[in-house]
């Protein structure tokens, strides 16, 4: 069985808002298959009795910060790298759901 097919790559591309042409689809399908088969080596380990880890430092838990204000960035700085802006807003293509 193929580790990833073109339909899945297309679907993931859509979720990521990427438009792939035919050549790219071919290329990425191949590359992703190669990456996934390498990673799938991990499946060979028996993890039946190992609790899932959600954080790299297994002994660390309950790390909090107090509810105290810290200075925010200056709005001009925030918008400095924006490809498009209007006033103090970021500007982007229209995204009204349902229209």
């Amino acid at each position: 069985m193929k580790i990833i097919d073109k339909a899945t790559v297309k679907h993931v591309a859509l979720l990521s808002r990427l438009i792939l042409n035919k050549d790219e689809l071919e290329l990425y399908s191949k590359q992703l298959a190669s990456i996934l088969s390498y990673i799938s080596k991990l499946n060979e380990i028996n993890t039946k009795d190992v609790p899932p880890t959600s954080h790299a430092l297994a002994t660390l838990k309950n790390v909090f910060r107090k509810d105290l204000l810290k200075p925010s960035l200056n709005t001009d700085d925030v918008l400095k790298n924006a490809p498009s802006k209007e006033g103090a807003f970021f500007k982007c293509p229209q995204v009204i759901e349902g229209k």
Binding site: R65, L68, L69, K70, S72, L73, T75, V78, A88
Partner: peptide
Amino acid sequence: TQTKVFCGCSTKFGQRPNSQTCPVCL
């Protein structure tokens, strides 16, 4: 809360757009 859930920016309503932001919440 006074500040956001994962950073120290203010949660105050009705302020100037993008004036309560930092690298974490951006």
